[in-house]
């Protein structure tokens, strides 16, 4: 019988494996800790640019959004997160009628961040930003009007 399988051998190898374990944790006891203290480290904290936290409408230099009220985003959303209200305006010069965005409501509470709306938008009028601190006390506050 090998030494490993004898009574004494089992005790010896058992104790040895336990001591190796203790040695490992002791080393970690003195290493630098990895905890990130979140609210305090807001300044240094790194969030990926691609992180999807909340839908928003990027504005051009005149402060207008690029939405053409086509409704593709609302149609493609699996959860019905986006509701668009439009009105038809007739251009006085050309006489052509055109759909104009009135209200773009985004329900943060039912969004699953699949990015289909952003992908489908022909004008890149919507995008995701990094504002992830979105906790509110009231569900109704999760309905956000994106066009200002």
């Amino acid at each position: 019988m090998e030494f490993k399988e004898t009574y004494i051998g089992r005790i010896f190898y058992g104790m040895r494996s336990l001591l190796i374990g203790l040695h490992t944790t002791l080393k970690e006891f003195f290493t630098k800790k990895v905890t990130e203290q979140y609210p305090e480290n807001r300044k240094t904290q790194h969030i990926s640019e691609r992180h999807r936290a909340m839908l928003y409408m990027p504005l051009d230099e005149n402060g207008n959004n690029k939405c053409i009220a086509c409704g593709l985003c609302a149609n493609t959303c699996p959860n019905g997160t986006i509701v668009i209200k439009t009105k038809t305006v007739t251009d006085e010069e050309t006489g052509k009628s055109k759909k104009v965005l009135v209200d773009y409501t985004y329900d943060l509470g039912s969004c699953m961040y699949c990015q289909l709306c952003v992908n489908v938008c022909p004008k890149e009028a919507i995008a995701f930003n990094n504002h992830f601190e979105n906790a509110v006390f009231d569900r109704s506050k999760l309905f956000i009007k994106l066009n200002k």
Binding site: E28, F29, T31, K33, V34, T35
Partner: peptide, 11 residues
Amino acid sequence: CAAFQCRLGPM
């Protein structure tokens, strides 16, 4: 416990 686990523990 926190120190063994590379954490800071209650802060």
